[in-house]
Computed example of a mutant assay.
Amino acid sequence: MHKVKDIFSINTPQDLTKKALQVFNYQYLNNLVYRKFCDLLLRDPAEVVSLEKIPFLPIEFFKTHKVISSKVSEEITFTSSGTTGSQTSKHFVTDLGIYEESFRSGFTHFYGSVENYAVLALLPSYLEREGSSLIYMAQDLIEKSNNPASGFYLHDLDSLVANLKKLEERGQKTLLIGVSFALLDLAENYSLNLKNTIVMETGGMKGRRKEMIRTELHELLKKGLGVENIHSEYGMTELLSQAYSLKNGIFECPPWMKILIRDPEDALSLLPEGKSGGINIIDLANINSCSFIATQDLGKNLDGQRTEILGRFDNSDIRGCNLMVF
């Protein structure tokens, strides 16, 4: 079963379906938490012959259980940031090489080789936020870019702006990736006109500013930074893959990841394209944890490739997901 590398050679939806069903059977046998969840749903593995039949584990289980499908000890534990006093998610990663291949291949799939970019991050550095899968990815992309201007700039906007201007003058392709509140600080305090820079937000006001809808956020960033489109990265502690939006909050997944939409009134039923509901994610890079996760996010599939992320469930609206907590 552990032919992990063939996950990254998936090319077609048929390949993904075939591999996902293999991974389901593997995780049912090897992941005690997931198996118990499936058994509580009375889901016979022999009946799981399509993606629609696969049970999706509520994401909250990463806060309360060790969700793991491997006998190998974890190499790293990624943790969610969380607010003070709240329970954080823990993702026990037994093979960091899979995560690295996933985010490197995913980035290349959408943007080409990172070596062509300078990567400037408006994110905490790894020392400030140990255990963040996003920071781990950003650190790796910064190192792989091999550009002397690449680095973390969260606490030094003046240096960031000076470097951005130099890179722009040289015509250097640049990726500016950051949390929403830091990008807003930049857009409001400096007048920039970025022509060779991709601006990518990773979400997150974290109480630093009022939450705002994506269209409002993106309009402010476009105006302040002088770019036509704002890109977005959609990832989370519990996943080892990321979806990307190149504009308008419309996301696409790499070939080994897929978003399905569940009925908010019936967590075990999936909705057709164009209908809004809860986001279920297949992430085959999660081979050693759980590849089938019911998130607390809302969205709708526009077609077989593209998904609009609409926000999060109000806690009072989460039905079905919490019914099976054991």
Rank of each mutant, 00 (worst) to 15 (best):
E128A: 15
L239Q: 04
F181A: 05
I293C: 06
G277K: 00
M1V: 10
A267C: 11
P55Y: 02
E238G: 04
K206N: 03
Q242H: 09
A46P: 00
H65R: 10
Y234C: 06
N196F: 13
S113H: 02
E143Y: 03
G151T: 09
N25A: 15
K18P: 02
T17R: 07
Q172E: 13
D303H: 06
L29I: 05
K210D: 15
K90Y: 15
S70V: 04
E100D: 13
K165L: 15
E100L: 10
S291M: 07
E128C: 10
L176A: 01
P255R: 03
E169N: 12
L16Y: 01
G320C: 10
D44N: 12
S316G: 11
M205D: 08
K71D: 15
S232A: 15
L167V: 04
S276P: 08
G224C: 09
E143R: 09
R104I: 15
A118M: 09
H155M: 08
N322R: 13
E115P: 00
I318V: 14
D263M: 05
S133D: 08
R214E: 08
M324L: 15
G277Q: 04
Q242E: 11
S133G: 07
L270V: 04
D314P: 04
N280H: 05
Y117I: 12
K206R: 08
D95G: 00
T307I: 13
N189A: 07
F326G: 09
M137K: 04
I54N: 00
Y99W: 12
L183A: 04
L221N: 01
C38G: 03
S50Y: 02
S105V: 06
Y190V: 06
T237M: 05
L270N: 08
L51F: 02
L42R: 00
Y99P: 03
I282S: 03
Y34D: 01
V67S: 02
T88M: 12
N25W: 08
A243W: 00
G235P: 03
N189T: 12
D317G: 14
E201C: 04
E252T: 11
N248I: 06
Y136R: 10
N163F: 11
N286E: 04
K53C: 11
T17K: 06
A149M: 11
K206D: 06
R312Q: 13
R214K: 12
L32H: 01
D263F: 01
H109K: 08
C253W: 00
M137Y: 05
G151S: 08
V179C: 08
F92D: 07
I259L: 12
H218A: 13
G224P: 07
G151Y: 06
L220V: 09
L175A: 13
L176G: 04
M212L: 15
K300P: 07
S145P: 11
S86V: 11
V179E: 05
V93A: 03
L310W: 01
I230Y: 01
N315T: 13
T174V: 12
A20M: 04
Q87Y: 06
A138E: 14
N11W: 00
S81N: 05
M1W: 02
L183W: 02
